Simulated scan of single mutants.
Amino acid sequence: MKQNSFRMGRLDHVHIRVPNRDIAAQWYSDYLGFEVVKKYDFWAKGFSGGPLQISADGGNTMLALFEASEGHPLAPQLTGVAFSVDSDTFISFSRSLPNGIESPAGQQLKANDIVDFDLCWVYNFVDPWGNHFELNCYEYKQIKQDLIAADNLTPVRYWPSELIDEYQK
């Protein structure tokens, strides 16, 4: 196997198709705290078909909103885009639910929709155009104490909790 000295850099942006970039940018701002990245605004304003770059972390990681068109149909991101936040942000998000964000099943996302992955906590949701997202928090013990126990939540589990004990032996 060939050794390669090249290493991929950080995740820059993810392409998201929406019917209208401005309406989508407003939704992402209202519900998830994204802002237009002014530095790249010329791509959206300078020519037809360019992306509107938005970010919730000052432009380090972005969503590139592309308007669906005849040559580029609306194709929702079904595999999901995952974002990671600290425990305070995660708890704040959870306690804001339900707030108009939907689960992938098409119902209002609720605090009890939280998923326990044994090493992190996750909320799965979709934007109004069917693009799938995850909100992750890896401060596991903090969330278990300050959110799960404090708010008496019953997390969703995809596998038995005993598997993590076996794995960590």
Rank of each mutant, 00 (worst) to 15 (best):
Y31G: 05
I148W: 14
Y31C: 06
A68R: 08
K2E: 12
D41A: 10
D22I: 15
N99F: 03
L52P: 00
A25Y: 01
L135M: 10
A68C: 02
A111H: 05
D146E: 15
P19G: 00
C120W: 14
S87Y: 13
Y140K: 08
I91T: 07
I16C: 01
I23Q: 15
A150Y: 03
G58M: 05
N4V: 06
N20S: 09
Q77V: 04
A149F: 04
D30M: 03
P98G: 02
K38I: 14
N60K: 14
Q77E: 11
R21I: 01
L65K: 08
E139S: 12
G33P: 04
L74V: 15
M62N: 07
D116E: 02
R21A: 14
G58K: 12
A24S: 09
L147I: 06
K169G: 08
P160T: 02
D12Y: 03
G49P: 04
I143H: 07
I23M: 13
A105N: 07
D88N: 09
A44D: 11
H72D: 12
S92T: 15
Q142P: 00
L32C: 03
C137V: 01
D113F: 02
D113R: 08
W121G: 00
T154L: 13
L32Q: 11
N136M: 13
D57H: 08
Q108K: 13
Y31D: 03
E102S: 15
Q107K: 13
S29R: 04
I148D: 06
H132R: 12
E35S: 14
Q107T: 13
S92W: 01
R157S: 05
S84H: 06
K110P: 00
L135D: 00
L63H: 07
E70S: 12
R17H: 10
R10A: 12
D22P: 00
T89W: 05
G33K: 03
A44H: 08
N131L: 04
Q108C: 04
Y158M: 13
Y31E: 03
D41V: 04
L52V: 03
F133P: 00
G58L: 08
N152I: 02
F42V: 14
I114K: 06
A111Y: 01
W129A: 07
I23T: 11
